[in-house]
Every structure is written in structure tokens, then in C-alpha cells.
Write a protein that binds this DNA or RNA. Structure first.
Lengths: 117, 117
DNA sequence: CATGGCTATCGTCTTATTACGATAAGCTGC
DNA sequence: GCAGCTTATCGTAATAAGACGATAGCCATG
């Protein structure tokens, strides 16, 4: 197990296996609620920036996010929690820090639901 | 000018002319704010339902929306206002009622921004 | 011109969101 | 084991969102 500098094993392009396509419907009451939930999570500038940051650096960054945003550490943590609970982001404990990366399934689901409008 | 039952002249498939494609960028601070704004507007189940309703009936419905949702008329009006201010929906006064329809540009913009993630 | 049906707005209440500092929790390296 | 760094959570305060009833505005019809 090589101690790769800042990249946790379960994040990044390494974990691109097993991407079964999503068969859930993009319409109906359940899909509505799901879309609302996802959209709400994206509905804040800071969270959009965080998402983009994580998408850009395909490898997942840790609390460097705090340095990129003009917000307090606790606020960023809160935003990350929102994104995590919405299933758009995943956090892996990597030693003393936490490594965040986009949850591809969640992002794909969001795109599918918006595309289904 | 035929008095078509409930279809205002500027709504519906009739008004599909002049759809220039959007050249604005899908990244950057401005795009972030725009996406956040649009996503926030979609970030409520009732508003998702309204959007779908308007998309489904390509001709625009009026306050029939109120009948479809388990919400008070004033609440629905509020949600419509949010959607309108986000540029996702357009309202045309059609005699005694108001005719709502999706704003194709806004919806396309949302899809482009989400797709750009 | 008055009546009646739609819709928007206002006022109000309740709840959620956002942001921050301070504090606690967890792992590493010494 | 302790010191130090990183991150999450708590407490708190300000603001925004969501919902409703009541009211006002508007247009067609009688």
C-alpha cells in the first residue's frame, strides 16, 4: 500500500469502477423531491464553488477548500455537510485530514434529473 | 385574431421562434452565482412540480396549478414569483387570468450550467 | 356600472439557513 | 504520551424562506 501523498484510495480517478447506469425514473413525485433536494444543495454560490473545485481537481482536495473561499472554516465545513448529505460529495478520512471528492453518482443523477425537465 | 380558448399569444409552442443559442460561459464566478440562483429556485418540491406541469402542458396553464397542488393560492403565487424572478417561467396576462409558461431560455441555461459541472 | 371570478400582495407566524467564534475530537510525529 | 495540526460540532445571532388568511386590484360578463 503506497502512501500516496494526499490522495486517499477511494477518491479520485482510481475509483471509477462499477459505474452502473442509473435506472431510476426522472419523473414522478419521488423524482421531484429528489431533484428539489439536489438543487437546493447546489443553490448556494459557495457550494457551487466547492463543487467546481472538487470537479476540477479530479483528485480530491482536503481543507484546501477553506483557503479558496472567503469563509470561516466552520462555515465551509457546514457547506460540505450539506453537499455530503445530498449525496453530491464524499468525504474520506485520510490520516489527520479529510479528503473530499465529488460523488459521481450524485452528480450524474442531478444531471439526469435536470436534463429530464 | 381567433380567441383561442386558454392559450395566450406569447406562450406555448407558437413562441418558439428566435432561439439564439446562449454564448455565455458556464464557468467562472458569474456562472457560479447564476447556477446557484437557478438551482435555488428549483430547490423546492412544489416548484419542481410547477415546472414539470408547465413543461408537460406545452401550452401554458393558468391558475389550474393551484388545483394540482395541495397548497393555498397565495403560496402557489409566491412560488410562481420565485420561478419568474429566476427567469425560469414567464407570466402573461390573458384577460381575467394569468397564463404561465416555461421560459425556454432560462431552462436551457440551467441545463447548460448543470451540464457544465 | 356593478358583480363575480382570478391573481397578486400584505401582514404575520414559524421554521430553516447562513455565518461566525469557540470548543471538542482525532490522528501524527516527536 | 503529548503537542500540534486539521476538521467537525455546538451555541448563538441575524437573515431568509415557507406557508397561510385576508385584502386589494383587474378584467370580462351581465
Amino acid at each position: 500500500m503506497p502512501t500516496t501523498a494526499r490522495i486517499a484510495p477511494s477518491c479520485g480517478p482510481t475509483a471509477r469502477a462499477g459505474e452502473a447506469l442509473d435506472l431510476r425514473p426522472v419523473e414522478g413525485r419521488e423524482a421531484d423531491d429528489e431533484l428539489a433536494l439536489l438543487a437546493k444543495a447546489v443553490g448556494h454560490p459557495a457550494r457551487v464553488q466547492i463543487l467546481r473545485l472538487l470537479v476540477r481537481r479530479e483528485a480530491c482536495v482536503c481543507g484546501d477548500i477553506v483557503d479558496e473561499l472567503p469563509l470561516a472554516q466552520s462555515t465551509v465545513s457546514q457547506h460540505l455537510k450539506v453537499l455530503k448529505e445530498a449525496g453530491l460529495v464524499r468525504g474520506e478520512i485520510d490520516g489527520p485530514r479529510v479528503c473530499y471528492c465529488v460523488e459521481p453518482r450524485g452528480l450524474r443523477r442531478l444531471k439526469a434529473l435536470v436534463g429530464g425537465l
